Lab assay of single mutants.
Amino acid sequence: MGFKLLSKLLVYLTASIMAIASPLAFSVDSSGEYPTVSEIPVGEVRLYQIADGVWSHIATQSFDGAVYPSNGLIVRDGDELLLIDTAWGAKNTAALLAEIEKQIGLPVTRAVSTHFHDDRVGGVDVLRAAGVATYASPSTRRLAEVEGNEIPTHSLEGLSSSGDAVRFGPVELFYPGAAHSTDNLIVYVPSASVLYGGCAIYELSRTSAGNVADADLAEWPTSIERIQQHYPEAQFVIPGHGLPGGLDLLKHTTNVVKAHTNRSVVE
């Protein structure tokens, strides 16, 4: 069995187990497998329904001669939608809004960016022009300005110390501490036991640490421990890039980060 097929099978099995364990909360999309990078042309966006009122959005972007996937989250909030992270750029984010209108038909009224990198804030200006209120932590807003990236308009308070959590509509926002970046936030959907790890969490097929220019490698494993301790009931975990899975993604990420750190020390 090929690795790609095995990865998709694991996603399907995880979703099936969740649907059985929580039949009222989960209505997993039966329309197909989780979209992969090879299936999404740059400039297009796919939506994948995880649970009743919960979707991931998947886009792709060219970077350094390669094409990478990027995940975000959409959560229903009454007759409105909360968006977590842009679709990595203005063109993708405009396509995301169009796809949401086509498939869901509810307005996106608020959006949260989970850290300051372009795959999370690139497209904020498109959201703002569409009347979406954009939010991020003060740290993310400051770092985005320093980096020359787009800056969300509103500040999220109460997320300055490791372990801080605040309720934001249908989700809980959690600051686990520094990891992929010093400002990275985690998003949890309690009604569906869905954990969105953003770039602080890796997919299972990833074996290298990737972009760690703004990471705190020493603190990252401790931050992941905080996530595990705060959300032990999480059933569906979405990484910032690639295929979702279960809580095993947290341990896998820790292993990859520690291996990278150990290699760096040896070198």
Rank of each mutant, 00 (worst) to 15 (best):
M1F: 02
M1R: 04
G2H: 15
K4S: 11
K4M: 14
L5Y: 08
K8D: 13
K8T: 05
L9P: 12
L9M: 08
Y12E: 07
Y12S: 10
L13K: 10
A15I: 04
S16E: 09
S16D: 06
M18T: 04
M18L: 04
A19V: 07
I20R: 12
A21P: 04
S22C: 11
S22T: 10
S22K: 05
F26V: 11
F26S: 07
S27D: 08
S27R: 06
V28S: 13
V28A: 12
S30E: 11
S31T: 07
G32A: 06
V37Y: 12
V37Q: 13
V37K: 09
S38F: 10
S38Q: 12
I40P: 14
P41G: 09
P41C: 14
V45E: 02
I50Y: 07
D52P: 05
G53R: 06
S56W: 06
H57M: 01
H57V: 06
I58P: 02
I58V: 06
Q61P: 13
S62C: 08
D64H: 07
D64Q: 12
G65R: 07
A66T: 07
A66I: 07
V67W: 06
V67P: 08
Y68F: 05
S70F: 02
N71S: 06
D77M: 06
D77G: 07
D79T: 10
D79I: 10
E80T: 13
L82T: 13
L83I: 15
I84D: 00
I84P: 01
D85H: 02
D85L: 00
W88Q: 00
K91E: 13
N92M: 15
N92Y: 03
T93M: 04
T93H: 03
T93F: 01
T93I: 01
A95M: 15
A98C: 06
I100Q: 03
E101K: 08
Q103S: 15
I104E: 01
G105R: 09
V108P: 14
V108Q: 00
T109C: 04
T109V: 13
T109E: 12
R110D: 15
S113C: 06
T114G: 01
H115L: 01
F116Y: 15
D119L: 00
G122K: 15
G122W: 10
G123S: 02
G123T: 03
V124H: 04
D125R: 10
L127P: 02
L127M: 11
L127D: 03
A129N: 13
A130I: 14
G131L: 11
A133F: 12
Y135F: 10
Y135E: 01
Y135M: 06
A136F: 03
S139Y: 06
R141N: 10
A144N: 06
A144C: 11
E145Y: 07
V146M: 14
V146S: 08
E147Q: 05
E147P: 11
G148S: 11
N149W: 12
N149D: 05
E150T: 13
P152R: 02
P152A: 14
H154D: 10
S155C: 15
S155T: 11
L156N: 03
E157H: 14
S160K: 15
S162F: 12
S162L: 14
G163H: 14
G163D: 13
D164S: 14
D164T: 12
D164H: 10
A165F: 10
G169S: 05
E172H: 05
E172L: 13
L173E: 02
F174G: 02
F174H: 15
Y175V: 10
P176Y: 01
P176A: 12
G177F: 00
A179T: 04
A179C: 04
D183R: 00
L185I: 05
L185M: 15
I186R: 01
Y188D: 01
Y188K: 01
V189H: 05
P190W: 08
S191T: 05
S193Y: 11
V194R: 01
V194K: 02
L195D: 01
L195A: 01
Y196C: 02
Y196Q: 03
G197D: 02
A200G: 11
A200Y: 03
Y202M: 15
L204G: 10
S205A: 12
S205V: 08
R206D: 07
S208A: 13
S208M: 08
G210D: 08
V212S: 11
V212E: 09
A213I: 07
A213M: 06
A213F: 05
D214M: 07
D216T: 10
D216R: 10
L217C: 06
L217S: 07
L217E: 07
A218E: 13
T222H: 13
I224C: 03
E225Y: 04
I227S: 07
Q229C: 06
Y231H: 04
P232W: 11
A234T: 11
Q235A: 11
G240M: 02
G240H: 04
G240R: 03
G240E: 03
L243C: 14
G246F: 10
D248W: 07
D248Q: 12
L249T: 15
K251L: 06
H252S: 13
H252L: 03
T254C: 08
N255E: 12
V256G: 03
K258C: 10
K258P: 15
A259N: 08
H260T: 12
T261D: 06
R263Y: 15
V266G: 14
E267Q: 08
E267F: 14
